[in-house]
Design a protein around this nucleic acid. Sequence first.
DNA 1: GTGAAAGCGCTAACAC
DNA 2: GTGTTAGCGCTTTCAC
Lengths: 339, 339
Amino acid sequence: MTGIQGGSPTLEMVAALAGVSRATVSRVVNNSPKVSPRVIDTVNDAITALNYVPNRAARSLASRRTRTIALVMPESTARLFSDPFLASVTQGIALHLADTEYTLTMLIASDATPEKTQRYLLGGNVDGALVVSHHSGDHSLGEVSRTLPVVFGGRPLVEGTAATYFVDVDNYAGARAATEHLIGQGFRHHGTIAGPQDMPPGLDRLTGWRDALEAHGLEHSFIEAGDFTPDSGAAAMTRMLDRGIPLDALFVANDQMAAGVYSVLNERGLSIPGDIAVVGFDDNFFGATATPPLTTVRQPSNQLGAKMADVLVRVIEGRDVARVTMLPTELVVRGSTAV
Amino acid sequence: MTGIQGGSPTLEMVAALAGVSRATVSRVVNNSPKVSPRVIDTVNDAITALNYVPNRAARSLASRRTRTIALVMPESTARLFSDPFLASVTQGIALHLADTEYTLTMLIASDATPEKTQRYLLGGNVDGALVVSHHSGDHSLGEVSRTLPVVFGGRPLVEGTAATYFVDVDNYAGARAATEHLIGQGFRHHGTIAGPQDMPPGLDRLTGWRDALEAHGLEHSFIEAGDFTPDSGAAAMTRMLDRGIPLDALFVANDQMAAGVYSVLNERGLSIPGDIAVVGFDDNFFGATATPPLTTVRQPSNQLGAKMADVLVRVIEGRDVARVTMLPTELVVRGSTAV
DNA sequence: GTGAAAGCGCTAACAC
DNA sequence: GTGTTAGCGCTTTCAC
């Protein structure tokens, strides 16, 4: 492979080689319908011959479209990037966008200077933004969404304000299904390690658990909360055991906390599911390899990313889209809830 | 917060408000040293008043610098993005770049049409590229590196050709240290589950293991290889046990395979480290939460990303940098190798 | 269907 | 130190 040299060929060079005007080359490059087939071929040959690549900057400047989408992640969230869920969402976004004409740029929103991000987004540098965040109630970005197409991943904590787009996993239904499963297995003494109650997923999963139990007339007051980390799960489990509550089934709001739960249960010599059945939420690496394998609720994280990207592109291009998209979860039954 | 309206203010408007020429505003924006302090203030006031943000496209077009860095990831690699190592490297890159004037754009290199990526990179759309890949012998990008600053993460399989930059983790030293630890604990019958031998990390870790044993006059021929997945680890462990080799220490080339090893050992009723001590490589989520916790070699994945970004920026800016940067690993001793 | 011409918003000589 | 003047490579009316 050769032919790619220092100074990239310009549209003008293509025009010269093809014997047409720059305008025509531009039309061909942009798939304008009003160019004769013969000319299209000629131009394309010239493009191939020169290995021409349109210059993004010039294009954006002239067209006032950047064909760039920002993936905005609060700094605090970025620091948790090793969270497989986030990584997977990002992957879904990147892979989906790879098939479009849009380019993805990652923007870490400094928690200290949110205006910087806001200005960047509003400065005409991107055509739209995708926001993924752990504490989803980001106000400054709500502002932005009045001017720029923005799609949020995960339901914002404070709703109703701006008419924003978001796509979310159905946390409530997932938690409810998990709990129904536990009930179906015959367990009657339920507890839960909930997530942070200032985050929608934490909230919704707890509500799902509670509603399922309530529907069956079962006790639903044995609750401890963690912050989604393994350590917090271990701590919550310890507190719960120390309360001396008789328990045979536990719904843990995510797999990472379930990991903490496993270690405490192991230490105390309690068997899973013999003494206590456990179900998690996420379906990450831990769940599949744990002993016993963890029954959990799988989130379509990849799909979540892809859908976010899809929605944003539609919004940018003026097609109509639902403001809310809910993605279904899937219960993955494994050994930790066997009877 | 208001004041940000539809049509972004231009440099010209700032100039008008500040009562200076556009050139002067440009100088201020670009921190040119030759502007009087008074004028700088005036201009900055105008910038603030108008909430001016420079237009990237116009800037790139005029300056022939994009201030954009591409993170190139082969499609096959991107599909493994949930690999915590990759995610962490990406995070390191993103966080480092967040403090610079550079923007990160994610480029998924389609395995089917590598020329597309190549053309994009060479089309003047980015100032440099960062390549992270699992099968690091990517030729097409070697080509690119002759024209565009490129930094590779992980040593390329085929070396010597182009004078490229890369930063890598010292896999050899890490493996060797892990094995020395095993030897120090008194184990004498060693085996290893190696990684793929067509990947530098797989190769180097095996060599490190072998050299350590050889230095101590110990047997080093009990080798099975996997492909870095848990399943392949389990399969390799099974083969090794079925060979009936007496073994009391096992070096596994990564933590994911160690997860597979754990499950096989559990099934067979063999205790860790009672019957067989195990050490892994990576230090991901599994290792810390496994029972017993896994002794492993921690890779500075975050730092790897940050360093890659740092090297690239230096190269772009014409400062001089070493072509090769090796990052040290750290042995994390946990229960799986206790005596 | 195709071409001519006028910018898009900025930087970078070059003068002063 | 500061202003003037050309473009950077492309899209987009507007004629024809």
